[in-house]
Design a protein around this nucleic acid. Sequence first.
DNA 1: GTGAAAGCGCTAACAA
DNA 2: TTGTTAGCGCTTTCAC
Lengths: 333, 333
Amino acid sequence: MGIQEIASVTGLSKSTVSRALRGLPSVAGPTIDQVRRVADELGYVPSSAAAGLATGRQRAVGVVVPVIDRWFYVKALGGVDAELRAAGHDLVLYNLGGPGGDRDRAFRRSMLRHRVDALVLLSLVLDETERAELELTRHPMIVIGGPAPGLRNVGVDDAVVSRLAVQHLVRLGHRAIAYMGGQDEDGMNVAVPYLRHDGFVDAMAAVGCAVRTAWMVNGRFSFDGGVAAGTELLAAESDRPTAVFCASDEMALGLLVAAHRAGVRVPEDLSVIGVDGHEYGATVGLTTVAQDPEAQGRTAARAVLAEVEGHAPEPAGPAAVELVVRGTTGPVR
Amino acid sequence: MGIQEIASVTGLSKSTVSRALRGLPSVAGPTIDQVRRVADELGYVPSSAAAGLATGRQRAVGVVVPVIDRWFYVKALGGVDAELRAAGHDLVLYNLGGPGGDRDRAFRRSMLRHRVDALVLLSLVLDETERAELELTRHPMIVIGGPAPGLRNVGVDDAVVSRLAVQHLVRLGHRAIAYMGGQDEDGMNVAVPYLRHDGFVDAMAAVGCAVRTAWMVNGRFSFDGGVAAGTELLAAESDRPTAVFCASDEMALGLLVAAHRAGVRVPEDLSVIGVDGHEYGATVGLTTVAQDPEAQGRTAARAVLAEVEGHAPEPAGPAAVELVVRGTTGPVR
DNA sequence: GTGAAAGCGCTAACAA
DNA sequence: TTGTTAGCGCTTTCAC
């Protein structure tokens, strides 16, 4: 049930069969047909392990995610997958599984086994040990999301994202602006939350607005977290912000629910702007700084694939972002 | 940079090194230590291809999804992943990529390459050709979601799901009940939508309620689709249903938005019940028939893993479902 | 407790 | 255009 069988049946040599199966040029037309036919009849299934051993190429790339059930990761994963599929490569998913996922073992056990030809890391900042370990494999690597020291990266410029949001709000007359962020996953060492946070602080400074500590809340980058943090933020009748910049649409969506429950009208009493371009946001009219994680995934995949092929890595600028004004932001009253 | 190097450096044989590295019993303690140390120093990275070739086992399982960005698939994928990770297996993701994904090629090209030891199919119904092709690999297979002819499956009993929902509504006095379903993905051949639809029809018949064709709407199993279908359903001032059973929480969430926009109060004017147990639903108070896709993923993974190990497949009953009554359903007025 | 040798299924020079 | 000959890096009898 290997290439050998086909060779015996057809009376050809293994090499010819191998070449025919791969559609290499130097094989006669009839030979190809014959081999294909016999392979079908025999129910031949190629062994990627054998091919991988012989060539040193696995035709697979690994994608590492901190957790799997976040909008951004799912979308980016989809983008990487689409590109890999087009290139005939498989996708091996390495889910660090969040704080409880035993990150270390996950790192060693699998990623280092030469099962893949390259690695796409989603929003991860690696520590020294991890970097060193991954370097061992000498595989092309790229990260999507926050810039990681020593690694190429594709992603938006988070300072720009925050600035866009703050400027939009300021133009509408807001100065009492709150920030909802968080640390995506405890201990997962994700950079983006910090970048967006710092971007917000800088942008506020640039437009001369004061940042109030009480208005920097933690929405944990999730819908639930957004509801919780929003509820707390809006609890005080007086001394409320007139606008909130949420570092992700999922949190913004949660805030919208909190506002609704608290009887706070949006955008009359409160303007809300998010980041991402989540589909739910589009249909509920959420103003946002949209990005395209799927495109980022595709770009990243193309980049590592090119590097695997030996092409020079194509240097890419920051990914596109776009302010999408919808109904949740309005002039301050 | 292989096992050979370590052998040379330590003066041991390849076999001993191999055994030491794998922690087999018949190796002296000091030898193990020595081998481990040298391996570390040399930056040894094992080759899963070589190991796979030699043993015939890849220590990897494939997960096939129709599309990747649906709540259920993401959760189930997470469950499969958790179990595989615990068992030290890798997860190869085969995303059919929806209707435009060139399903055939995806099937042939990758899944049939012996890259994985087993396959977990998410909600897929295979046609004859596909079944035949996959059979070639002789790998253990299981499907999560709708029962697939000829394959083991784990999932909820969709007739029960629909009955639970209908009975809940009927107990509240509803008889004018609409159904929002859809065909998840065109051409993706997913069974669940049909099962839930039929379950609804049967359950309605069982309680003596009439099913109105105009009240069977297509929410495409998505949030957007739910908004659209809901808007349409609620457009007619008169002749509205008093309750809607949505075959997924994502659609139910969309319906909630549509109702809000149409000025239809929930649950006073309209009761809404979904299926799934989506986190968003929990925080907005959506009544639902909850299931646990993550648990289903773990169960499926355990099952195929056991089969790979040669253990008899553990026969499992249908997965648990639970009616979770929250705020979106109430007595008919 | 350790070693020698064969082989997993394929690819890749090098010949013919 | 096709065949021959070596491996790829590991596991696994079978000896010692």
